[in-house]
Structure formats: structure tokens, C-alpha cells
């Protein structure tokens, strides 16, 4: 399974034609305590960069965009009851949704782990 990263601080774990998507550890640290995640409905078709989810801290709401074109096949309902999972385990239990990829070539625009690490370090300068 390959893991990819977007410039919008999302990670994708790709398994066949389905990607599991969440926000990175860097993103959750920047947002602070997550209090709510508004997830997309299963079956919703999304275009790359379209609004997929909203992640909320006490004083901010941030949009999470679809990193690729596709259809939502599953949303992490655990987050309804326990949004803190995004802080505690952003890149595992705190995943947001699974999306069925329609155009695999879009994955080429994403970064690998080393690339994302360099990207984040670049932001901090």
C-alpha cells in the first residue's frame, strides 16, 4: 500500500482503487483540539479540490478538499462520537473517509512521505 500526501495537508493510503484519506499530524497540530468533523455522505461524487469535509476546532472551521476525483465509499463514523481521535491518531484511527479513485493519474501530482516532510519544513521557514 502506498501513502501519498497533498499540499492541503491530507494523507492518502492507497489500496487498489480505494484511498483512505485523513489530515496529517502537522495539520492537526496546527488546528489544535478538534471538536467536530463534518464528513461527506457515502455515495457522494467529488471532483479533485472540491469540498469533502469540514474539520472544526473551538474557534475555527477548515475545509478539507478531495485530493482526487472519486466517490465516497465509507466515512469514519467513530469521529462523530470521538473527534479527539484526529488529534490522538491523525494518520491511523483518525481517518476521515475512503474514496474510490476514478482517475489514478491524479495520484502522480501528490507527494511521497519524504516530499511532504520537505514541503512542511519549507513552510516553517
Amino acid at each position: 500500500m502506498a501513502k501519498k500526501f497533498s499540499k492541503e495537508h491530507e494523507w492518502l493510503e492507497i489500496d487498489g482503487d480505494v484511498a483512505t484519506v485523513g489530515i496529517t499530524d502537522h495539520a492537526q497540530q496546527a488546528l489544535g483540539d478538534i471538536v467536530y468533523v463534518e464528513l461527506p455522505e457515502v455515495g457522494k461524487k467529488l471532483a479533485k479540490d472540491g469540498d469533502a469535509a469540514v474539520v472544526e476546532s473551538v474557534k475555527a472551521a477548515s475545509d478539507v478538499y478531495a485530493p482526487v476525483d472519486g466517490e465516497i465509499v465509507e466515512a469514519n463514523e467513530e469521529l462523530d462520537a470521538n473527534p479527539a481521535l484526529v488529534n490522538e491518531s491523525p494518520e491511523n484511527d483518525g481517518w476521515f473517509f475512503k474514496i474510490k479513485i476514478t482517475d489514478a493519474s491524479q495520484l502522480d501530482d501528490l507527494m511521497d512521505e519524504a516530499g511532504y516532510k520537505a514541503f512542511v519544513e519549507g513552510l516553517e521557514d
Binding site: 471538536v35 467536530y36 472544526e56 476546532s57 473551538v58 474557534k59 475555527a60 472551521a61
Partner: peptide
């Protein structure tokens, strides 16, 4: 408050 105008 994230529903409200001062944030959204």
C-alpha cells in the same frame, strides 16, 4: 460557534 458568522 463555528456555525456562526464571525468564524464561517
Amino acid at each position: 460557534s463555528t456555525r456562526e458568522q464571525h468564524i464561517r
